[in-house]
Nucleic acid binder design. Structure first.
Lengths: 326, 326
DNA sequence: CTGAAAGCGCTAACAG
DNA sequence: CTGTTAGCGCTTTCAG
């Protein structure tokens, strides 16, 4: 029932060759104007839609790109996805979202599915850990790493955030406010970003002439729950007068600990968040935070995706995070 | 360079027929076990990936589904997308997200692109307005409307939220707390949901023996900005002692007005939000809100998408929203 | 158990 | 300007 309308069925209906239909529909010059118009009209009437599969099989490219994210409830990822999706609409690219949950096998599966449909490219937040598969064969798919950089066996583009300066600035900012006991909650050394953030924090302390008490520096695998727990612990101990967060989920968790404990974002502990959730601007007089350049990241990703540059050349760009004082 | 590895190239490499390769790779019984294993090994070595295009062209189905959303920064949509995406991973469906910005032409374009790739189904939040195109030809794609119901010219599945009881309950709740001047900020009559929410609000007032002063009932095209403006106006006038929001965006905007004005969520105006953003649980002692059954909606959508039921039968289900008092 | 042929929808390359 | 042929990668059908 309701046979698919193809170029051939239109041709038969019109009593002409399917090639003429093809040419008419793709506005090829070598078609009598009247023929073209009659074909286009009939195609519309019959409800013709071109087959992307047939085009793909001929090697015409699919205009599909993938986006691999750990999740999408995280406001940072959601905003990134939103911006990228908008850019894709503008370029008439279709965006396939795969959630990996930071699991490397889910990631592998997603990549394979994208290869099967001959996606033109993929923007991925690489899951932490060693990859059981190789990217060496991804010859036809442009790969862009986002935020994190993993060894994929083959050089690929990377779009990173340089948050060192902002983190150091956060410490300086707090020191200028007179804080002496500045704590840090961040990811542990599993991820390279965890290491570099911690370093930036320590640089800030040194600059300010303070030193890092072990009790005030709290690192662990990052999650909202971890942020909440560590923040509660800091509040409990009561030694810290300020805290800097090094991660989006951590920041949210820590903030939740503060608010649900009935505290304020500047008292008893001055809070510096990570990422600029919309709500950070609303709470109290606003939360000072390390703002990630989401839009810049997404725009760059979109640009790389539609760029015709050789797939095998690779480029790494980093955008600076900025300290937003509120 | 790096010619695509196909079933034929493997066959040639192995000096056998491409049919044997096909059978070996799909675990067809009629293949000598040794042959099968040798083929599978060689395929892995050569980096073979099956062509989804070729399969689609044979009419095998694409396992691709679309999701059309106005945007995805809205936490409700983000959570929905997240849950649906997880369900899709589980069913090894690929999820294509198109953002429509509630624009009907963007919607039409997205639908067409999904047809071109022969998507198996689409979950869509229909944009408001009259459709310039017809869905009559979507014979092969299962269509599921989400939250809103528009006339698509053809009956399709719909997954709705029934928030009437919860809205009425919100009014009752406020009345029980002693509030007499209960305001409402919601969508105007453009959307059917706008009408029914307002009705539910008025039912609540009647039940509580209160009446609706025109000044306290504020409807307009919904947006965060509108919510903020209306809430500011209510605070300015100072007549309302409580307010109920009828929309996610509106609720966020109104809350922003309250917080950025330095007010609390229960003073001077008791606030009942709409949708259960994570942060609603954190602010102050928590925000009372009308909680939408996001997970239920997404699960139902996933179920409908993978159900084998006839595409042309249509079903409408509604899940109740619930009042969460905090 | 293995192979050859045909066809899914489309367009490039040749004929007219 | 229009038509015919061939082939993209795969599986179903029919023959060995």
């Amino acid at each position: 029932m309701a046979e698919r309308v193809t170029i051939k069925s239109i041709a038969k209906d019109l009593g002409i060759s399917h090639m003429t239909v093809s040419r008419a529909l793709s506005n090829h010059p070598n078609v009598l104007k009247e023929t073209r118009e009659m074909v286009q009209k009939r195609a519309r009437e019959m409800g013709y839609v071109k087959s992307a599969a047939a085009k793909a099989m001929r090697g015409d490219g699919t205009r599909i790109v993938g986006l691999l994210l750990p999740n999408i409830v995280n406001e940072f990822y959601a905003r990134f996805a939103n911006t990228l999706a908008l850019a894709c609409e503008a370029e008439s690219l279709q965006l396939i979202i795969h959630l990996t949950g930071d699991d490397i096998h889910a990631e592998a599966k997603a990549i394979e599915r994208l290869q099967e449909i001959q996606a033109q490219g993929v923007v991925m937040v690489p899951a932490p850990g060693d990859r059981p598969y190789s990217f060496a064969r991804l010859k036809e798919m442009r790969v862009i790493q986002l935020i994190r950089q993993a060894d994929l066996g083959e050089p690929v583009d990377a779009i990173l955030v340089d948050d060192s300066a902002a983190i150091t600035a956060a410490v300086r900012h707090l020191a200028n406010l007179g804080h002496k006991q500045i704590a840090y909650i961040g990811a542990d050394k599993e991820l390279s970003s965890g290491r570099s953030r911690l370093t930036a924090f320590k640089v800030g302390l040194v600059e300010a002439g303070l030193d890092a008490s072990a009790e005030l520096v709290r690192t662990a695998p990052p999650s909202a729950e971890m942020g909440q727990r560590q923040m509660e612990a800091l509040l409990e101990v009561g030694k810290a007068s300020a805290v800097v967060c090094g991660g989006v989920e951590i920041s949210n968790g820590a903030l939740q600990a503060i608010l649900s404990g009935g505290h304020k974002v500047d008292n008893p502990v001055a809070f510096v968040g990570y990422g600029d959730a919309l709500l950070y601007a609303w709470i109290g007089k606003g939360v000072t935070t390390i703002d990630l350049p989401v839009e810049a990241l997404a725009s760059e990703a979109a640009a790389l995706l539609s760029e015709k540059r050789d797939i095998h050349s690779s480029r790494t760009v980093a955008f600076p995070a900025t300290l937003v004082c509120r």
